[in-house]
Design a protein around this nucleic acid. Structure first.
Lengths: 364, 364
DNA sequence: ACGAGCCACTAAAGCGCTAAAGCAGCTGGG
DNA sequence: CCCAGCTGCTTTAGCGCTTTAGTGGCTCGT
């Protein structure tokens, strides 16, 4: 639609090539329609005070002139900032390779962008820096809500964020985070299912290449493994902590497989580490699943793309993102309105990387 | 909450559980120090108009009271929004698995967060939606600059963004994008190097599993392959377009390897597809690099984590992010101050997935 | 027939900050 | 000794929007 010469433009020069100085404001719309700015504001915000006829004319004009509210002006009046914040503080570099956050963000977006809420993303080195970002964002009123990921045992962020008064959701915690509600998955049940499955196949020597042990979810998994081992009478299971990096995943695998009583099954806390582990096994000539079964505690393309495809605990991370974003928006609108939410428990997707341990025959 | 009959207003009720109303403002600091708000503003912004002594007292008070400027208020006055925007419009789902963007973002952050510039991230389905986001952000004055990724042949975004008047940098284009400067890598040279390397090993049937052919960088690679084939007299090379997904990467590989004259080397346009291709080859019993050499046109943990590790064109994506962010900030501060920037050319990192084609002996 | 009440709107104040203009008190050149 | 010209502030205005308080004109109930 070519810009018709009349009405629409600001009293600018010849061609609209220059909009430079004059931002389009509701005053312009008001002038165009012939009402006061406040009438325009009423109309645009769908509140009473203008006749339907006028409202329609105003909305039309705004549309035609391609007007958008100046977010800062709105926010200044006390309106929400229209953004939520996410800070990632993994000891990075590895971060790029883990599909988890990317998928999560993608899921969140499907909710956020539908409501025109922006996502502020910041990647930092450590928790200290993370807190600084929170404080700044809160002070600057840049965000209406925060998503806190990877809760730790004595997490300083919980109290700090609560003190800032910014609504927040914790992802992956369970119980006792001050007043912040959490969206969590039942890692425990997932781990139990996995161990039961491996035990049923005949495995007794099961290793667990865990993530960062300060993370709550990692701890839950470690504890669950121990409990399962107790229940099932598996004497030879243990968890080895790592920093979630492919490097440590590979190194630990190499070490485990070199031992005299090497495990016959390894559960990895992330898909990346599982793939790295598979690489090491292949390189060492250990057949998978012939002599070693591999399970990943996180699922993504990675596990499907390698050969053999890796048995994994899968959950719909995209859906998780949706859930988290919805909870976040809800708590922003009405603080205290959200209780802890239990997300779907990861379910074991059996692929080609798991089988009976060596020495166990079909007939038992 | 029952409305208590008496003193309904301000004088906070029982518990100070309510800090709600009173945001900390420069007026508070002014009162504390005993000067006017503008004196405080001057002091905090390091501009003349206050004595050093007063300035110090003000800064101290601000620090002590833990004050932060209200970003909206600043922005209203015409100050920059303090944020840059990035919209990702890949036909997603796959997106999560590609380390490229995650690494890029991480690199950008190291520049942005040092300057306290926020990153607005949005993931959308298609270019149309992407344009909508740009228009909204521009209208709302939410961002000071934009990064446009994956430029296409006749990219509608270039003109649209230029018209919006928002400073922007294009990543991965080269030449002719209106007035928007670009940061680009020499895909052509990289492809030439790769083909030369493969040809030197003795390969003549080289396939190229390309990305989305509407992307400029994909086209450059396709053209480079054709040129290289011409120069080196390789009759049997060709590029197969895909959507960058692991699924298509795998499917195309399967198809290629089933042909009578199967290629002896395949170059993949992304690491994820390369890994998928390796998986297919393994599954089909085609030894790598014995009968098939594999090269990835993008490097990341993925290529190193699998076995055999994949020969790849590596570049420092983190550094690229740094470069991009710096260019973006520069162009925000001084529009027109940035010319096209050539990033480092990806260099071939030879790993285990490439070797002589079958039938070629050491002595030739 | 007159004030109460409503409607559709306008006028004005204010959000927190910056920027321009104003204004005391001092200095120093003529 | 007077005033231009500082210095170090304060006052005022305004960014674009929402919101509260009006304000005319109208209808209506008694």
């Amino acid at each position: 639609m070519p810009t018709s010469g009349s009405g629409v433009n600001k009293p600018g020069a010849a061609l609209g090539h220059e909009k430079a100085k004059g931002r389009l404001t509701i005053a312009d719309i008001a002038r165009e329609v012939g009402v006061s700015p406040s009438a325009v504001s009423f109309a645009l915000n769908g509140r009473p005070g203008v006749s339907e006829a006028t409202r329609a004319r105003i909305l039309q004009a705004a549309e035609r002139m391609n007007w958008h509210p100046h977010s800062a002006a709105r926010a200044l009046g006390g309106a929400p900032a229209g953004a939520v914040g996410l800070v990632l503080a993994r000891p990075t570099r590895t971060l790029g390779a883990e599909p988890f956050y990317a998928q999560l963000i993608y899921g969140m977006q499907s909710v956020l962008s539908a409501r025109s809420v922006a996502l502020l993303l910041q990647v930092v080195d450590d928790t200290e820096a993370e807190l600084t970002v929170y404080r700044r964002w809160a002070g600057e009123q840049r965000v209406d809500g925060l998503l806190i990921v990877d809760p730790q045992t004595k997490d300083p962020r919980i109290a700090a964020v609560a003190a800032l008064g910014v609504p927040a959701i914790v992802l992956g915690g369970h119980g006792k985070h001050g007043d912040l509600p959490t969206v969590w998955a039942d890692d425990r049940e997932a781990m139990l299912e996995t161990v039961r499955y491996l035990a049923a196949l005949g495995h007794t020597r099961i290793a667990h290449v865990a993530g960062t042990p300060t993370f709550q979810h990692t701890q839950r998994r470690i504890r669950a493994l121990k409990d399962a081992a107790g229940q099932l009478g598996l004497a030879d299971t243990h968890s080895v902590p790592t920093d979630f990096s492919d490097g440590e995943g590979a190194a630990v695998t190499r070490r485990l497989l070199s031992q005299p009583d090497a495990p016959t099954a390894i559960v990895y806390d992330s898909d990346l580490m599982a793939v790295a582990g598979l690489g090491v096994a292949t390189e060492m000539g250990v057949p998978v699943p012939g002599e070693l079964s591999i399970v990943s505690f996180d699922d993504s393309v990675l596990t499907r793309v390698v050969h053999p495809a890796i048995t994994a605990l899968s959950r719909d991370t995209h859906a998780l993102g949706v859930q988290v974003a919805e909870a976040l928006l809800r708590i922003v609108e009405e603080p205290g309105s959200v209780a802890d939410i239990k997300a779907a428990t990861p379910r074991l997707t059996v692929r080609e990387s798991t089988g009976k341990p060596p020495g166990v025959r079909a007939g038992r």
